[in-house]
Design a protein around this nucleic acid. Structure first.
Lengths: 243, 243
DNA sequence: GTAGATTAGTGAAGACCATTAACCATGCAA
DNA sequence: TTGCATGGTTAATGGTCTTCACTAATCTAC
């Protein structure tokens, strides 16, 4: 096809890569500004100075465009969370867990439309159209948090339920989850992760969906109280300076 | 206008009421089948055998149609939850709380698109367009659960945080919430309600948004474990037969 | 360097959609 | 019965996605 031109790109390839990058960027911008609803082929085409049908050479229609944004967002989100965890003192697991989780909240609040596509209703729609695309985000995100839980578990201070204390069908689901994120701690530890995540996810959705918005304009105080509970459950303390 | 015809309707009024009912029903049906996305003026018009512009005599465009469905759903949802609580033995608060909450989960799982409009991303979009419409659902739903919490509180077995144990800005938000639902228990009790609800809401969103769907096809086991935690926190036990 | 194949764009067209405007028939009230 | 408010109509405008036929440019192979 392109010949073995040792890394050198032909003019066509360069132009193509460039336009695709621009289109993805414009799509991302539109999503942020007007939600997934506003992510339209025509608007992207306008933004990059091309006619709508041209984008069919790059994406599989509007569906494909949304998928492309989803993929970009996955990368971005995962790297932000991983970075937040890495920035903390590697010894202080409480601080690390708080920082990573707080990064998730902050990103979500700052990017509600993107959250919608990544883990909200936009994801549900996308997943319904395309096949399975779950894996990547769950694996990477679960992996990042999973490492911290593994460390907690290794330290032996973690109080987690034994297998026979878990409902059999829940146990099976939790094991699948653990295998998806690719870690080897006991199911009880994975259940602890799920218990934390479902609560975090709840607050994220409340913020994005403006649920109870009449009372809660800012979810940070509620988030902090939740994190105190959660970190308490894990036997670590949140550093006092944060919040 | 219509004259004082003692309850009797003129032909016009009857026909109008009839068509409006049919249109709302069709709108509801479309929402259930194809999500809020699929709730389109044209489709409703087709369904009730009328041309699209005709619906402008009944609703304020597509926006108004969505709003109408939202209102219908609010009524339906509230009555279902209230009914579920009422059906339980009035003495057993644990059973009542579980039944009401379980009704919320079951309704949500059975009606994901409707949930989206009522409390999910659809609500966020609607609220962004229209003004405030929060009140009704939150007041009614919070009221129903609030009664049970009030009873719990009256029995004096409830372990809730004192005001000075609550972050000041969170306290303020919780008080606003308590006032919205119109009850008079201490803020700490309202915070307990919020603590429960954010967790319930999290599981609802996970189910609707197919979050972690690769591992969790059915959220009832996770829900039951959560309810055991929650009811334990409230000092009541779930009746063993349920699940 | 040129001939042929591939690629990336174009505009036109069809099928939806929302919304507005102009118009007409009918039911209702004085 | 006459006039008017009401509730429908069609037509038109402008937006969307998508497919198709076509063209111009680029690249490859000779």
């Amino acid at each position: 096809m392109t010949g073995a031109r040792g890394g050198a790109q032909t003019r066509r390839e360069r132009l193509r890569a460039e336009l695709e990058r621009e289109a993805r960027a414009e799509a991302r911008r539109l999503t942020a500004a007007h939600g997934v609803e506003g992510l339209t082929l025509s608007a992207v085409a306008r933004g990059v100075g091309v006619s709508p049908p041209a984008l069919y050479r790059y994406f599989d229609g509007r569906q494909g465009l949304i998928l492309a944004v989803y993929e970009d967002l996955t990368r971005e989100f995962v790297s932000i969370v991983a970075e937040a965890a890495r920035r903390e003192a590697s010894g202080d697991l409480g601080a690390q867990l708080y920082a990573a989780t707080r990064a998730v909240l902050d990103w979500t609040v700052a990017h509600p439309a993107e959250f919608d596509l990544l883990m909200g209703a936009g994801y549900a729609r996308l997943a319904a159209s395309c096949g399975a695309l779950d894996r990547v985000l769950v694996r990477e995100l679960g992996g990042a948090f999973g490492l911290m839980f593994t460390e907690l578990w290794r330290q032996g201070r973690l109080n987690f339920p034994a297998e026979d204390e878990i409902d059999p069908v829940l146990l099976k689901q939790v094991i699948v989850y653990r295998d998806v994120i690719g870690l080897d701690h006991p199911p009880g530890v994975a259940l602890l992760m799920i218990t934390c995540w479902r609560q975090i996810y709840g607050i994220l959705c409340m913020a994005v969906n403006r649920h109870l918005a009449a009372s809660f304009d800012d979810f940070v105080p509620l988030f902090n109280r939740m994190m105190d509970d959660l970190l308490g459950m894990l036997g670590v303390a949140r550093a006092s300076g944060q919040g």
